[in-house]
Amino acid sequence: MTQAIEEPWGISVFGSGTVRAEPSLARLRPAVDVLAASPEQAFQQAGEAVARLREVLRRHGVPDAAVSGSRLGLSSEYGGHGGDRTLLGYRCQASYAVETGALDGLERLVAEVVDAGAHRIDGVEFDVRDKESLLDEARRRAVAAARRKAQVYAEAADARLGPVLHIQDVESEPVAAFRAAAGGGPSGALAPGAVEVSARVVLGFSLRH
């Protein structure tokens, strides 16, 4: 069975490009989570934990502008089911996103944040500051890969590659992959891998014989 090309005009090829770079910053997501007998106690204990958390961040040189957080939220918490359902207390929660470029001291920062009152760490992500430059380079590599592929097809078909007629960005906003490795050893509990940025493109070329 053969497939006919209804409107032959040239050659269309796909190309992808990836750039890897060492991370230049980290985003830490600590959270305060307090359960107390009364709303007043829950708010007070959570507020004290947040104050200690802020002090640790300032001591590590993290400016207030690099910290974004949520308001303190309060909810009732119950245990049991049906007729055995009882009030356990009032839970007060607040989460934060902290950005820092001091990667060498990241493990110590995490430990001190937890000691200061953060009840959990919802995640640690690694990123780069000049992501646009990486995206531009990934796009160039994607175009180069597509052109190489088109050249091979053209030569195999005993044709010559003509000018580019069409460029289609397959992914309008390429996403960076943050490859962070977590280990249990004392010398690398938070070991960031390379930050990968990828781009994909479809190029259309004319053909000459």
Rank of each mutant, 00 (worst) to 15 (best):
R59D: 08
G117P: 06
R59A: 13
A102K: 00
L53S: 02
G82S: 02
A116Y: 03
G79S: 03
A46H: 15
V114Y: 11
L72N: 06
V110D: 07
A51S: 04
V98K: 03
D84H: 06
A118Q: 04
R59G: 12
A111V: 08
F43G: 12
G101F: 10
G83F: 14
Y90T: 02
G73N: 12
D33A: 11
Q41I: 12
H81W: 15
F126H: 00
Y90D: 05
Q41H: 12
A97F: 08
A94Q: 14
S76L: 13
R120C: 09
G117F: 13
V98L: 12
A37Q: 08
G47K: 05
C92V: 10
A97S: 09
L53N: 02
Q45F: 12
E48H: 05
Q45R: 03
A111C: 08
A49I: 06
L103E: 04
S68T: 03
V114N: 10
G73E: 14
A51P: 01
G101T: 00
P39R: 07
S76C: 12
E40Q: 11
G89A: 09
G69P: 10
A66H: 05
L57A: 05
E99T: 03
R85Y: 01
V34H: 09
G73V: 14
A65I: 11
G79Y: 03
V56R: 02
G117N: 04
T100K: 02
V113Q: 04
V50C: 09
E112I: 09
G80F: 13
C92A: 09
L57F: 08
A94L: 14
V113A: 10
A36P: 04
P39M: 08
Y96T: 00
G80S: 04
A118D: 07
E40K: 07
R120D: 06
E77F: 15
A46G: 11
R91F: 15
L109W: 11
E99W: 10
R52N: 02
E77C: 13
V113Y: 07
G80K: 06
S70E: 14
V56A: 04
D33S: 11
R58G: 05
A94R: 13
S75A: 13
D84C: 03
V114W: 13
